[in-house]
Nucleic acid binder design. Structure first.
Length: 370
DNA sequence: TTCCTGTTGC
DNA sequence: GCAACCGGAA
């Protein structure tokens, strides 16, 4: 059975109401003021002696309380956490994934969220809060020109296509350069699958220049548009697997598109910033070891082990902006960082790696696992 | 030099 | 694991 400490990492507040209902709130999603348990708006129905359980997010709160059809509304929502519980007889049960409203046996005790299985690093909440505060002062490029901003004024289908194209173009490219390329495509009416299929590849290439790898990206863009048009009626694929099958779309972009394009959280979008910062903070490691993770994919899996799911989307823009302004790849500004006291890597990357020989740099990398 | 919100093929 | 893809900025 899981310890109280592990259960606490879920930050779930459980409270009984006079209707013998259990309302579970994710405390990270709520201000302390809104933590008051709400009574079951429809007590007793289909509960059959059980206890109603609500698992929901802050942003659907209004919907729930205002709409009598709360069950349908809730069950159609994504990003619902999974929870395990213990029955009175000691046996284990769980609330099904994606099931927002479930019935829990009388006397059952919530023991854990199913998803996070790893140990949370100490002080992770303080660190996250500290970074949020630093970010509220800074204005990182990602805040105004990130991929998720692409086509925010467009209709849903076109917006999704814009997000996909923006993702495709943005790798290894400065935010403002990518933003310019998207604007030029838009102005030339080339931000739909249909238009790109009809357009000349050289034209595309000229418009997206100078994004990184523009030749390859122009080629990929044509192929992706063709696939979107023929297989998805001009829309973009709605599953992780299908997105990954597109040329030029890897794990980082696939998760970004799922997150901001479909609002369907399948995993954390881990890029170079999230990868670097999580390792600096000691938040991720090789399974069963204390060594740092070596690839963003490895970081993603390790991070998903313990980070609560409602942080999966915001962690990306948060750490990207932090990485663009303070926790930079080269010469991080630890002196300006308010959470350096919690960072095992603080003030340890002051000298330029190039000041050392290649050999010592390699050995340094190898010994960095701590 | 190193990096840019990476992906791909070897 | 690592070079290639791309060119420019800090």
């Amino acid at each position: 059975m899981l310890s109280l400490r592990q259960a606490n990492t879920l930050s779930v507040a459980v409270a009984r109401t006079q209707f013998n209902a259990i309302t579970m709130y994710n405390t990270r999603s709520f201000s302390s003021k809104s933590l008051q348990p709400k009574r079951d708006p429809n007590p007793g129905s289909e509960s059959s002696g059980g206890v109603r359980v609500f698992v929901r997010k802050r942003r659907v709160k209004e919907t729930v309380e205002a709409n009598p059809l709360h069950e349908q509304k809730l069950s159609s929502l994504p990003d619902i956490e999974e929870f395990a519980y213990k029955k009175v007889d000691g046996s284990a049960g769980s609330i099904e994934s994606e099931s927002a409203l479930s019935v829990l046996p009388v006397g059952a005790e919530v023991t854990s969220s199913i998803r996070p299985t790893g140990e949370s690093p100490v002080h992770w909440q303080e660190v996250l809060e500290g970074i949020r505060k630093m970010r509220s002062f800074e204005d990182a490029p990602v805040d105004t020109m990130g991929c998720e901003k692409a086509g925010s004024v467009l209709p849903p289908k076109e917006r999704r296509f814009a997000v996909l194209v923006s993702s495709l173009l943005s790798s290894q490219t400065k935010d403002h350069v990518n933003h310019g390329a998207i604007q030029r495509l838009l102005q030339n009416g080339l931000l739909t699958a249909d238009a790109i299929v009809k357009a000349d590849e050289e034209t595309i290439k000229g418009l997206i220049y100078p994004v990184g790898f523009y030749t390859r990206k122009a080629s990929n863009l044509k192929k992706v548009a063709e696939i979107c048009l023929t297989k998805y009626d001009g829309d973009i694929p709605s599953s992780l697997e299908e997105l990954l099958s597109l040329p030029g779309i890897g794990p980082k972009m696939a998760h970004l598109v799922m997150n901001v394009g479909w609002n369907n959280v399948q995993g954390i979008c881990v890029d170079t910033h999230v990868h670097r910062i999580c390792n600096r903070l000691g938040w991720v490691s090789r399974p069963g070891t204390k060594q740092r993770t070596s690839t963003p994919e490895e970081t993603r899996v390790a991070l998903q082990m313990w980070l609560p799911k409602d942080e999966w989307v915001p962690i990306n823009p948060l750490l990207v902006g932090f990485g663009q302004t303070i926790c930079t790849p080269l010469r991080p500004r630890c002196g300006e960082c308010s959470v350096s006291e919690f960072c095992p890597s603080a003030f340890k990357e002051t000298s330029s790696p190039s000041s050392k020989s290649k050999k010592s740099r390699t050995s340094k990398k190898l010994s960095q696992g701590n």
